[in-house]
């Protein structure tokens, strides 16, 4: 499949990625996408309708652990990783007006 990588595609993908790109970075990204997606032609070599997809290599599905009570992480231990916190919670800007 031929996909022309445009400035709009790059801008939209940057939004999905929550990244701000400079104009120069956008141009570099366009070039990079074109190079990598150029190889995708090699994937046209087979009839996709007859082949199932492999998302995961092992056969395991929905492995469940035994329901055994254990020690959870301590609150302080986890909060100590936070970039901004109060005594007992994460701090973020107001999200609900």
């Amino acid at each position: 499949m031929e996909t022309k990588i445009t400035k709009e595609i790059i801008a939209h993908t940057a939004k999905l990625s929550r990244l701000e790109l400079t104009e120069e970075e956008e141009k570099g990204m366009e070039k990079h996408f074109a190079s990598v997606l150029g190889w995708v032609k090699t994937l046209d070599a087979f009839d996709a309708s007859s082949v199932p997809a492999t998302a995961h290599i092992s056969d395991a599905v929905n492995v469940l652990r035994d329901d055994v009570p254990g020690e959870p992480f301590g609150r302080e231990k986890l909060l100590s990783c936070a970039p901004e916190r109060s005594e007992d919670s994460y701090i973020v800007p107001r999200v609900v007006e």
């Binding site: 993908t13 999905l16 990204m29 990079h32 996408f33 087979f46 996709a48 199932p52 997809a53 492999t54």
Partner: peptide, 24 residues
């Protein structure tokens, strides 16, 4: 960026799904 692109609406089948089949 590349990952979000191949998963995004309109491109998923052509890229991600096809690659998953090539994996098989």
């Amino acid at each position: 960026m590349l990952g979000n692109f191949v998963l995004s609406s309109g491109y998923y089948d052509a890229f991600y799904l096809r690659a998953s089949k090539a994996r098989t």
